[in-house]
């Protein structure tokens, strides 16, 4: 499956992170007079994301995966290391350069409700990325936002609703639509499907895959769930305590994990008896013609 990409050999990387490091200064006990200590959340992390590719960054809590995402999205300044985007060094980008970078790189967050302004209509939310950058809205606000709604499988008639009037899955679709507003080259999904119910999660993942097929952008997909990652990524990097312990093509990491930690992670995933599964699939094949699908999208 990575063989079919072919992009890694010929195309230059879209994003290149080199020796990214983030240190936080914390105070232990003792209040303001307490001793300072330095915590390295991300420790010399290097990786590349190629065009049209999905790289998953997987790890448990405290592994530094979300901090890495924030550094790459330039929502946080790295202590050390460099970030190159489309061949340009953006590590210290400011002003116009940063605005251009934000046009190319968008983020979808875990909790759709806290990342959407509750007092803004969907139309305003979806056009905000262009408005903030002073860009013209092609075709007018209404048509532009309506088209985005359709792309993510929502009803364009609901443009004047507020986030609270949508379900969690629908709100996440709005978050995805907003990321697409500027026509990004890289979409960073920070646990974008983790908070969703399993049936909704499957649909949102299908949406993410379809959008990538249609528009050809890359994903940096941050997740704690290896099973989710397996369906969506071409390559995987496993993080632990701020360090990438293993990275490689998706199939290889799952079938021949090299690092003991990756093996521990894989072994910890609860599994359904394969025999039960086999019988269910056989049964499902018989039922296939009469199986009805639930009616509404999330």
């Amino acid at each position: 499956m990575t063989g079919s990409r072919g992009s890694q050999a010929d195309a230059p990387p879209l994003l290149r992170a080199r020796d990214l490091t983030k240190r936080f200064t914390t105070r232990g006990g003792g209040g303001p007079l307490g001793r300072k200590s330095v915590f390295t959340a991300v420790d010399s992390v290097s990786f590349e994301v190629f065009p049209h590719e999905t790289l998953a960054l997987v790890g448990e809590s405290g592994s530094g995966k979300s901090t890495t995402a924030r550094l790459v999205a330039k929502l946080m300044e790295a202590t050390d290391g460099t970030i190159e985007f489309a061949g340009r060094d953006v590590t210290h980008a400011r002003g116009t350069d940063l605005a251009r970078f934000r046009n190319d790189v968008q983020v979808v967050f875990q909790d759709p409700f806290s990342s959407l302004n509750p007092r803004h209509t969907v139309e305003r939310i979806l056009t905000a990325p262009l408005v903030y950058q002073g860009l013209p809205i092609p075709g007018g606000r209404r048509a532009f936002a309506g088209e985005l709604m359709e792309r993510v499988g929502l009803n364009p008639d609901h443009l004047h609703r507020y986030p609270a009037q949508f379900s969690g899955g629908q709100a996440q679709r709005i978050g995805i639509a907003r990321a697409l507003a500027v026509g990004p080259k890289l979409v960073i999904c920070d646990e974008a499907v983790s908070a969703l119910d399993v049936s909704v999660q499957a649909q949102v993942m299908d949406l993410l895959l379809r959008l990538q097929r249609e528009s050809g952008f890359s994903y940096l997909f941050i997740a704690h769930d290896l099973a989710v990652v397996r369906r969506i990524s071409h390559r995987i990097a496993v993080m632990k305590q701020g360090v990438i312990v293993e990275s490689g093509p998706c199939a290889e990491v799952f079938e021949r994990p090299r690092d003991p930690y990756t093996r521990t992670l894989l072994a910890a995933i609860p599994r359904i008896d394969p025999e039960w599964d086999r019988r269910r699939r056989e049964g499902a094949a018989e039922h296939a013609s009469i199986t009805a699908s639930p009616e509404e999208l999330p």
């Binding site: 929502l154 009803n155 990538q212 969506i232 999208l297």
Partner: peptide, 22 residues
């Protein structure tokens, strides 16, 4: 993590065509 590997881009059997929702 244990079924046949579905490559990215292969739409799962649960997927339905996107359409405006209720």
């Amino acid at each position: 993590i244990d079924d046949e590997l579905a490559a990215p881009g292969v739409v799962s059997p649960t997927a339905r065509p996107a359409r405006p929702t209720d």
